[in-house]
Amino acid sequence: MRIGGHIFIALAALVLALPIVVVCGAALNGGRSMFFPPRDPTLARFGEFFVSEPVWTNALANSIIVAFGAATLAVLIAWPVAYLLWSSGSKLSKVLAGLGSLPFAVPPIVIGVGLGFFWAFTGGLGHVWSGVVSHAILLMALPLVTISIGLQSIDRSHLDAAATMGATEQIAFRTVVLPQTIPYTISGFFFVLVLSFNEFIVIFFVSASSYATVTLQIFNSLRNGYTPTMAVAAITFLVVSILVFAAVARWGDLPRLMGADQSKN
């Protein structure tokens, strides 16, 4: 690669990192205001975020409940859909997969408004559990895709081999399909986890201000100006994202999940 290419990549990385670095630096401010570079650096804000300020600790707890709940639910719904799509390829299964991806494909504000109405009529508006379900619906498309990629990577002759050795469809599923798709399932789970943590619009409409996740809490606080504690939240989420994706890259095949050609290395 020529020198120009390296410069361009470095420049892109710099711009990409710039606001993140600024937010991270701002978290170290000693005072109540955001400055960059930070004044009077301290780690006290981290204590506020994780321990002492109920506004933030509650928000963090809600974020965690919604993210883990949504990720679990999304994987549980996506699995049978992806499996039917792969094993039968029927029209109905294609329709199901299409419907499952729909909420992720439209502008989030539209599905946010729709789910807001939906929960208002069904009595779920403002409950944490409806937030869990809403995020599962919104982000179901992700495990649907990763699990489908995993299923497609299974060699069909493995299933034939299992059958000639006496495995019924259920046994083949448990001994051949499931073990080979676990990395893809986990990747899908993590994608939902991270995106749910960071999602704002949908949770804004379905929470109806009766509870707040961290992103909501930050948005609510935007009007009163920034505080360094918000930056701590941002850092926390960034670290979680990096850890999760690094884990996916370490134990799963990230380039393949992202659609890279397998034959090249």
Binding site: S157, H158, D160, A161, T164, M165, V176, Q180
Partner: peptide, 20 residues
């Protein structure tokens, strides 16, 4: 009779060994 009841041993072109 379905394949899993015939239980004819078969060697596949790709061998189809289970990697896990």
């Amino acid at each position: 009779l379905p394949a899993h009841k015939r239980k004819f041993g078969m060697v596949f072109q790709s061998f189809a060994l289970f990697p896990h």
